[in-house]
Write a protein that binds this DNA or RNA. Structure first.
Lengths: 246, 246
DNA sequence: CCGCCATGCGGTGTATACATTTCGGGCTCG
DNA sequence: CGAGCCCGAAATGTATACACCGCATGGCGG
């Protein structure tokens, strides 16, 4: 069989194309390009990332690419196996549940710490993001909506007084995005649950940390419940491979 | 001045010497060697890690060393600044407080999840570690005591049902070890507070997750309070540099 | 016709050569 | 005598060459 048994493994060329114009990119900018592409689901889980292709794309040698890939692997963005091409991570169901549990814990505390500490200008920015997300949702620009939705959470992570926790939350937001792309039911409007984000911004502005944390907890629980996490275990993979007709 | 203004910057040769026998070490083993050396405080904060020296020590080329160093930097074990030698991280006071706060949050949840889930054999191992720590303490083998103390926490992180949280805790334990080495008052018996570890093991065995979390919370708070975190701000550094006599 | 092995290709793993930067010692000039 | 400049040693940054590995292909033999 030429086609892969599991989810597709497209090449990275297309999803990263907008960045190819940046000649002589540093390993930091390459890291961010791939990170962003994975975050916004332009690079779906399982996408292959050949070093040579990337080095030509970004106009640097493989040394730089390898450094960027090593860092991405450390952040659980990609998986690297010996003598094999790196690919965007595909966490299993168990890890997915753990990611959600960890994020509920960390994001809750981040919100408690952040509530009431943001300047007026920062609150403006936050509400701007929420508004942009809503408008993107209403005009059906799904790519933009996902981007803004992620940015809401990343904004809160970035401005948390405890940057150690903030950094953890940043990583968990990315991994959440990956597992949503992996396990979302077809057609679900991922991560747009009513105006949770708007209400969250309101609670953050008013300094209601505990209520913000509780809201985020429900938000993430609802999100997890929307995913196809029941059947899709390793058993399914095996069954589909061994009995492609059924 | 030949002597550095801040804490010492010894070369890495001595602390890593026991590993030099392993010719042709992989980047994974090099990563672990340095990680372990930092964890047990054989490599104090600020230690310099020149790539060429390490490559000769381990008998590999700089490529491998650079990969290991990149990963260590991702885990906040070392700091890498452009065109400068890597050195073991030296978090400032603010980051230190954030590390403790993050660890209280994460370790608390890890203990809640782990309590009551360990097999008899695993509980044996845990109590063995606690006993070894105590005996090392009583015979004054400080190196061994630190090692066992770290291993108690790492053991719990490794066997947490939620491995995403477990991995976070592993990283936080290391960073805690670093800041203890940095800020401990001279002569304090770092991280040996009564029989907290023994009582912790007891609560884990009995499945008392909440009580275990509460104990760890107090344990970590007490540990943080033992550190010199009041004065030692950037102001001190500046004062010492500008007025070496006072 | 089916299955097995050899071989080529495309990928990563590692070492090394060379460019560039930093930092310090020592010379020179004011 | 002191301040500033120059330069070289030693470190990192980058590119590249080559070895090795895995996989797919296609020919060959049963």
């Amino acid at each position: 069989m030429a086609t892969a048994p599991d989810s597709g493994k497209p090449t990275a060329a297309q999803a990263l194309a907008p960045d190819s114009g940046n000649r002589k990119a540093s390993d930091q900018s390459i890291y961010e390009s791939i990170y962003e592409a994975v975050l916004t689901q332009r690079l779906p889980p399982g996408s292959r990332l050949p070093e040579v292709a990337l080095s030509e794309l970004f106009g640097v040698s493989r040394s730089i690419i390898r450094k960027a890939l090593t860092r991405l692997a450390s952040d659980h963005v990609i998986e690297q196996r010996p003598n094999q091409m790196a690919m965007v991570a595909r966490p299993d169901v168990e890890e997915t549940r753990q990611i959600f549990a960890a994020r509920r814990l960390v994001e809750g505390e981040v919100l408690r710490l952040t509530a009431g500490t943001l300047s007026k200008a920062r609150l403006q920015e936050l509400k701007r993001l929420v508004k942009d997300e809503k408008s993107a949702h209403q005009s059906g620009r799904d790519q933009d909506r996902v981007h803004c939705s992620m940015e809401v959470h990343r904004f809160l992570a970035r401005h948390c007084p405890n940057q150690v926790l903030g950094r953890m939350m940043r990583d968990l937001v990315l991994r959440t995005s990956i597992v949503i792309a992996l396990y979302k039911s077809p057609g679900m409007s991922a991560c747009f649950l009513g105006d949770d984000h708007a209400r969250l911004a309101e609670l953050i502005a008013k300094g209601e940390g505990d209520q913000a944390a509780a809201l985020a907890h429900r938000h993430l629980r609802a999100l997890e419940d929307l995913l196809d996490l029941n059947e899709a275990d390793a058993a399914i993979d095996l069954a589909r491979i061994l009995r492609p007709d059924a």
